[in-house]
Design a protein around this nucleic acid. Structure first.
Lengths: 346, 346
DNA sequence: TTGTAAGCGTTATCAC
DNA sequence: GTGATAACGCTTACAA
């Protein structure tokens, strides 16, 4: 900490301990120190030890920016996700980030809020950092984004979607299958008159796939599908209420209802109970998402849990495999499974 | 897309469109293009227009790594947060990320899981990217981390905490005040016998500050504090149950209970109702956190909402002010307020 | 307003 | 196993 003769003030990165400083102090050349960090086995044990000492002593922190420039491959992976704080994607980010970090890579993150313009601008900004790989959510990108991706020539992963025909690595699950297993679960519990409530958010196409899985399966099982569509763009919680009360008042009163997501189901659960219906005796309720509140409701909400965390971990794993950081072939197609979380509501 | 005479293969960043390429195509020097991006007003309108054309045509993406190295200040801000997917921090990250992005900065993110070793290794890795600023959660860092921070000489912000005596910019709220306003809220509603349930997680010191606020305020109001401590390290949901049943069976049966957090409160709400108690008639319940499920419970959980999103936005704002990106003096101390969210449970 | 030259701290290349 | 040297693509400093 003593104030040594201050070196001639450099114009910019003044004061930073550099690789060269370490090299000099250790009596080796810069490239040897570089090798010490990147391919330790190619440095003799004695020098290795000496360098380690100096590094600790000087508190040297490798400048990854310089390294990235020199090698054109920074240890950064960028991810664009619709949102961070919603109930859906947080686990995916967490799994992705943790897996990456464990292998010495850093996460650059931005939200798109489902807007392809915002996605585009995030991708543009990210590419400036020459990330080692890029992870996007879903397959719908603006033409400009597609162009940048094509030119970037780095591993690309698309999560929360599954388009076998697309070139990027796909990591997703089948929404259709969600409809299937939810319907089978209810049928297995003895329910026969099963309805489905669509999402109130226009443009939620995945929810329609879940609905189709339901319709198909129920028909196979000899039932008669009954689909309710709430008013468009009603808040999901309200839409669930509306659907519940309408269905319970209808002539074709169902014994069980599958909701397009847990928000709808929660609204239904509460409104149903307020209206005096017992759940699941008068009507069973199922959701989708396994949002954090599902376990807190009374009765607990039976729902289908998407493999959110798993997708994040797998996305990172595939990226690291592509980069050769970890062993294994990075499969192009990665279809994960959802799981019925049985609680009291169905 | 035609295969032009392939230029002599460069060793590394082969093929990337560079600033120089843009400059040549536009008939100006590299520095002018650089200025076009960084201080557009110092470039004449005609050249500006010409450069814009070329940039679009060539699909030039500025290499931020090179820029970062040259200027020793990348437009990256790093944040270490205990976790991403828990109920607490997601809003803070979201607010932080969005505010940053809006001003052209990118977010580098990692989780510490409340471990100072993990925080240390994240900080070490981040510093290698010479971020423009660093944001940490809480004030407790390992000595090595403190040393790195001291030497890094970049703006540092600590969120979710508030230690006026510390040098970094502090952004937090008063846990003590949470205890105060919760107690006042219940007192205002007419409850007199008010109990407090501590967190089951050992080491949650903030929760103890909330408790002290409660004790102090209740005494001021003429009440007699009654603190219940669940078994240590019981899952919060279970701990809430245990506390509820124990308190309702005790001689000093309370009219209202403040729980150290919403998880405890939710456990209590459900267990209480299962045991036949009406809430809030037999006993009112309050939590802390305003976790996503709070609104979904029946009755809705009255709770104290911390300014999570706001803290993220403010952290980013202070950082940007420090960096001179946006106007305004960056205050050292930033105490935000919590808010009682009144629902049915109290 | 514009340009020239030098350098940011590292790694690739090639030689020893 | 080790080193000298030249990039990597940009921005600072200074000059015109």
């Amino acid at each position: 900490m003593s104030d040594e003769k201050s070196p001639p003030r450099k114009r910019r990165g003044a004061g930073r301990v550099t690789l060269l400083a370490v090299a000099r102090a250790a009596g080796v050349s810069a490239i040897t120190v570089s090798r010490y960090f990147n391919q330790p086995e190619s440095v003799s044990p004695e020098r290795r030890e000496r360098i380690a000492e100096v590094v600790a002593e000087l508190g040297y922190v490798p400048n990854l920016v310089a390294g990235g420039l020199a090698s054109a491959r920074g240890r950064i992976v960028a991810m664009v996700i619709p949102n961070i704080s919603g109930p859906i994607f947080a686990d995916t980010i967490q799994g992705f980030s943790d897996t990456l970090t464990r292998h010495g890579y850093q996460l650059l993150l931005a939200s798109s809020y489902f807007s392809s313009e915002q996605e585009e601008s995030a991708v543009r900004a990210f590419l400036g950092w020459s990330p080692a790989a890029l992870v996007l959510t879903s397959h719908f990108h603006s033409p400009a984004t597609e162009k940048m991706l094509a030119e970037a020539d780095i591993p690309l992963v698309e999560t929360w979607d599954y388009r076998p025909e697309r070139a990027p690595i796909q990591i997703g699950f089948s929404h259709h299958e969600v409809g299937v297993i939810a319907t089978r679960h209810l049928h297995g519990k003895g329910y026969r008159k099963i309805a489905f409530v669509q999402n109130s958010a226009a443009g939620d196409f995945s929810a329609l796939e879940r609905r189709d899985g339901y319709i198909e399966t129920l028909k196979e099982l000899g039932g008669e599908p009954q689909v309710f569509a709430p008013e468009t763009d009603l808040a999901p919680f309200e839409a669930g209420k509306q659907a519940m009360l309408a269905l319970m008042a209808s002539e074709q009163r169902p014994e069980a209802i599958i909701f397009a997501n847990d928000n709808l189901a929660a609204g239904a659960l509460l409104a149903g109970q307020r209206a005096g219906f017992r759940i699941p005796e008068d009507c069973a309720v199922m959701g989708f998402g396994d949002y954090p509140f599902a376990a807190m409701l009374m009765p607990g909400l039976t729902t289908v849990k998407p493999p959110a965390l798993q997708m994040g971990v797998l996305a990172a794993t595939r990226v690291l495999q592509k980069l050769g950081v970890i062993e294994g072939e990075a499969d192009h197609l990665n279809l994960l499974e959802c799981q019925v979380i049985g609680r009291e509501s169905a």
